[in-house]
């Protein structure tokens, strides 16, 4: 055999291996799976990844590594997830803000929804409109009346600029024709602490960060921001039931693969995740943080993201929410 033949045969062999590779998805997963989290440890996306990851390991006997890639409004983690090889070994756990708010908020955003193959929605965390317990406000009607009397003077704290919490606040303001003064904090915990300490009268918080302060008697929950009351606190009325039309938002997470991941792999992941999210002990662990599990199909997730992105982008634009 001369050199050329060897080279040809080698190339052919390599090509064959590449061609055959999709068939290997029968044996997926054959090496550790990474779940990228575009946030620092401790957030809901991180916790969700760790719970689901541990169960995937149990089911498939392959290690699942949760890799936190925080920073840049989640750009870093989301971009890494979009650019990873589409082989099902690198997944991304995103939150609703990353896929439904960021595209409206930033002109130069390095990733788009089409970059991903949706697997499933994972968890759903209700948000609440809370007031400091020492304030006289007992219902959303009280808030609206006070805001009408002094437009732009009532301060509302949120976990940050461009957070879903801020969008909800602006949504409510738009639909009722009033204005609030937005006070952004660096995350949910400082915002909850400031509200409990009485620095600000109102806050839009995750129910999990509000709950301990409510128990301590420092906060009062005036409404949940979803269309349905929270399963864990059915006594909290919704915004809609108190005359704020249309507003329906919560902080949910979703699991993504890079676009082009073989359908069998995405389906296998989806089926397994659905099984995991239905397990009683998994539900219980999420419920500990006031969070529900919400399994779905990839198509349902796709529709949900598109609908939410469309709704929220209108608010971002109308309320002139800016981040850069």
């Amino acid at each position: 055999m001369d050199f050329k033949t060897i080279r040809f045969l080698t190339a052919a062999a390599v090509g064959l291996v590449l061609l055959v590779q999709p068939a290997f998805s029968q044996t997926y997963p054959s090496k550790p799976i990474h779940i990228l989290v575009p946030y620092a440890p401790g957030g809901i996306a991180d916790i969700a990844s760790r719970i689901v990851g541990a169960k995937l390991t149990e089911a498939w006997g392959q290690q699942v590594v949760v890799e936190n890639k925080p920073g840049g409004n989640a750009f870093i983690g989301m971009t890494a997830g979009a650019k990873a090889p589409a082989d099902g070994y690198t997944l991304t756990m995103a939150t609703v803000g990353d896929v439904a708010i960021n595209p409206a908020l930033f002109k130069d955003i390095p990733y788009k929804w089409d970059d991903y193959a949706p697997i499933s929605t994972i968890s759903d965390a209700p948000m609440v409109w809370a007031a400091n317990a020492a304030t006289p406000y007992r219902s959303i009607a009280d808030v609206l009346a006070a805001a009408k009397a002094q437009p732009g003077r009532l301060s509302v704290g949120t976990p940050g600029n461009g957070s879903i919490n801020q969008v909800v606040m602006e949504w409510m303001a738009l639909n009722t024709g009033i204005q609030f003064q937005h006070i952004p904090y660096k995350g949910g915990a400082p915002a909850a602490a400031a509200l409990a300490g009485g620095d600000i009268p109102f806050g839009v918080l995750a129910s999990s960060s509000a709950a301990p302060q409510v128990k301590a008697g420092r906060l009062r929950v005036l409404a949940v921001t979803g269309a349905q009351p929270s399963k864990f606190n059915p006594e909290w009325p919704t915004l809609q039931s108190q005359g704020v039309k249309d507003v329906d938002a919560s902080n949910w997470t979703l699991l993504l693969a890079p676009k082009g991941t073989p359908k069998e792999i995405v389906d296998k992941l989806q089926a397994e995740v659905a099984k995991i999210l239905a397990m009683p002990d998994v539900k219980e662990r999420f419920a500990g943080g006031g969070v529900e599990t919400i399994p779905s199909t990839g198509a349902e997730l796709d529709a949900k993201v598109k609908k939410t992105a469309q709704q929220l982008s209108v608010i971002v634009e109308k309320a002139k929410i800016k981040a850069d």
Partner: peptide
Amino acid sequence: VNSGTIRFAFNQPELT
């Protein structure tokens, strides 16, 4: 934190 403006980052996403 207050305005969401990215300062002194020279367009490096890692510095945001």
